[in-house]
Structures are given as structure tokens and as C-alpha cells.
């Protein structure tokens, strides 16, 4: 992607409290922790300031970001390590090339906006942004789904409006929306979520991880999502997978099991303890607090996957 090409817009989609802003707050921490040499910077003053504020909220204040109150835009730039090229006439020497850059224009709405049926200035702006975007991060909060059960409502309402605007014409002859969608099961660190994954036999220890934190394998994430939907409070939730795969190309949908703050690990043993992994505790005065170090799980992966998909797609087809 060159700088003159239109930037991929990535919109966050999810119910209120599903962890959209926390996910964004954890993104730069995840990049730092992964030692991949990818870094996240703000493209403008406001987005840069927000990036720092969000990160400090998790790392210094050890609390979660406040609820998003209005449509918020973050214009961030994901800058990767430079690729080294060998010169054919001097193959023993390498030379640093241009660092890959992925523009991430995140749209973070207040959660309730997705489910609102009546027209409003914000709702119009949200739908218009979704229509313009080509990448979606859909946040599915199993805890909320088990207690409120409104995930289907949040997805269905806005999706209908987006589809009505985009599919009414002949531009998308196959009848599918052109977006890439990263479906993120959030709050994996919540004992209720981890327990379910464990009970359904979907977890396995990551042998590459010295802390042995149980993971849901990439190829089983869809199944976990499906089962969580069926396990939810609302029967409508069962239809979410169908809804996603009806509106989007199946090969453009990828499932991730995520946690913005990760599991608590006792630093003395540096091993996952199934009896003591709760990293989020409830402070009666300050609300939810982060107990130990922030170790995001699968936070940068959906973003890098979307960024990669969008940039290669834009290179191929000019979007």
C-alpha cells in the first residue's frame, strides 16, 4: 500500500461493555510484549494522545477505559520491522528496505449505538463508517451474552442497514459484503469463559509458552464461538454465526479468542495456576482493577491479520 492509496478503515463492532476500547488500549502493549518490532503510533495529535492515555490507563492506573460516550476515531499507524533485501551482485550483504506500514483507522462507537433502531446523527455516522470500512473487529462478550443476551440484536440491527446500503446496487454481484471480519471472543481471562473452553475440551497448553497458559487453537476458535452462542441467554445468539457467514465471505471471516489483559501469573512461579489466574478484580471504590501485569492474548493478531488482508487486497485491486 502506498501513502496515496485510501487507508483501510477498521471499525469496532460490539455491544456496550464488550471490551472494544480495552482491546484498543491493549494493542500497543501486545505489540511491545510480542517483541515483533511492530509499533503503533498516532497519525495525528489527537489519536496519538489517546493512544498514550489508553495504554497508561491499563499500565499505570490499572483500570479499564471509561465507557465510550460518542463515536471515537483513532487514526493509528502500525509500523513493522524493515525488511532486509539482498543485492544480487553482493548476496553476502543485506540492506534494510522500507518498513511496512498499515494504517489503522479505528472507529469506536458507544456500544448501545449498534442496537438503536431510531435514526440519529451518530447512528448515521456509524453506518456510513461501516459502509466505508473494509475491516471489522466484531467483539463478542460471552459474559454479557450469558447475562444480557443482546449480541444478536447488536449485530443484526446495524448489519441490516449496512447491507441495505451496500448490496442494493450492483456493485457486489455475489450478494456478500466486501469486509474482512475478525470475530473476537473477548474476556478469555474471565474464569467463566476459560472454564467453558476447558469443559468443552477446546483448550490446550501452548508448549511454546513457558507459562503454559491454556489456549484455544486457531482452528477451533470458530467452534468455541459457535458453542458460546448456543450457550448464551438468548436463543437468537445461535444465529450469529449464520448471520455473519450469510453476509460476509466465509474466507474473509476469522475467529480469535482474546483477552485484553490476559491471565494473572504469579511471578514467583511464572506458571499458569488454574486456581489463581484471575487478573481482573472488583474494587468497591474504583470498579474493575487489573491485578497483575497486562499480557494481552490474541490482541495484535486480529489487527495484523486485518491489516495484512486489507493492504494486500488494496494492492491487488485498489480496494
Amino acid at each position: 500500500m502506498t501513502e496515496s492509496e485510501p487507508a483501510p478503515d477498521i471499525a469496532m463492532w460490539g455491544a456496550s461493555g464488550s471490551g472494544k476500547t480495552a482491546f484498543l488500549a491493549a494493542l500497543s502493549i501486545a505489540l511491545n510484549k510480542a517483541e515483533t518490532n511492530w509499533k503503533l503510533v498516532g497519525e495525528n495529535q489527537a489519536s496519538g494522545a489517546e493512544l498514550i492515555k489508553l495504554r497508561n490507563r491499563l499500565l499505570d492506573d490499572r483500570t479499564f477505559p471509561d465507557s465510550t460516550e460518542s463515536l471515537t476515531y483513532y487514526n493509528w499507524l502500525l509500523i513493522g520491522p524493515p525488511e532486509y533485501h539482498r543485492q544480487w551482485w553482493r548476496p553476502w550483504r543485506t540492506q534494510p528496505g522500507r518498513a511496512p506500514r498499515i494504517r489503522l483507522d479505528f472507529l469506536d462507537p458507544r456500544g448501545g449505538l449498534y442496537a438503536e433502531s431510531q435514526a440519529s446523527v451518530d447512528k448515521e455516522a456509524l453506518v456510513s463508517s461501516l459502509v466505508r470500512s473494509r475491516g471489522l473487529i466484531y467483539m463478542f462478550d460471552p459474559d454479557r451474552e450469558s447475562r444480557v443476551g443482546d449480541a444478536f440484536k447488536h449485530l443484526d440491527s446495524a448489519l441490516n442497514e449496512v447491507a441495505a446500503q451496500m448490496l442494493a446496487g450492483n456493485e457486489y454481484a455475489d450478494g456478500k459484503l466486501p469486509h474482512y471480519i475478525a470475530v473476537c471472543i473477548t474476556k478469555y481471562d474471565d474464569p467463566r469463559v476459560l472454564t467453558l473452553a476447558d469443559r468443552w475440551g477446546l483448550t490446550e497448553p501452548d508448549l511454546n509458552d513457558e507459562m503454559r497458559i491454556p489456549r484455544v487453537a486457531e482452528d477451533r476458535a470458530r467452534e468455541f464461538f459457535h458453542r458460546l452462542c448456543r450457550h448464551g441467554r438468548s436463543h437468537n445468539a445461535e444465529m450469529i454465526v449464520d448471520l455473519i457467514e450469510t453476509y460476509f465471505h466465509k474466507d474473509r471471516v476469522k475467529f480469535f479468542v482474546t483477552s485484553s489483559v490476559g491471565m494473572y501469573i504469579d511471578e514467583r512461579h511464572r506458571r499458569f495456576d488454574p486456581d489463581d489466574f484471575l487478573n481482573v478484580i472488583d474494587d468497591p471504590h474504583r470498579g474493575l482493577m487489573i491485578r497483575g501485569p497486562v499480557r494481552p492474548i490474541n490482541v495484535m493478531e486480529p489487527v495484523i491479520w486485518l491489516g495484512g488482508m486489507l493492504s494486500s487486497r488494496s494492492m491487488r485491486s485498489g480496494r
Partner: peptide, 19 residues
């Protein structure tokens, strides 16, 4: 105001100006 948020406030104090 929060400058990353799209708001309809014409006059405000903020940490930085909107983009």
C-alpha cells in the same frame, strides 16, 4: 471535550485539538 471523539461542540477546552 475528547478530541478523538466526533462531537458537535463548537467551543471547548481539550488536551489537543481534533485532527
Amino acid at each position: 471535550t475528547n478530541s478523538a471523539s466526533r462531537h458537535r461542540i463548537r467551543l471547548s477546552f481539550a488536551e489537543v485539538a481534533p485532527a
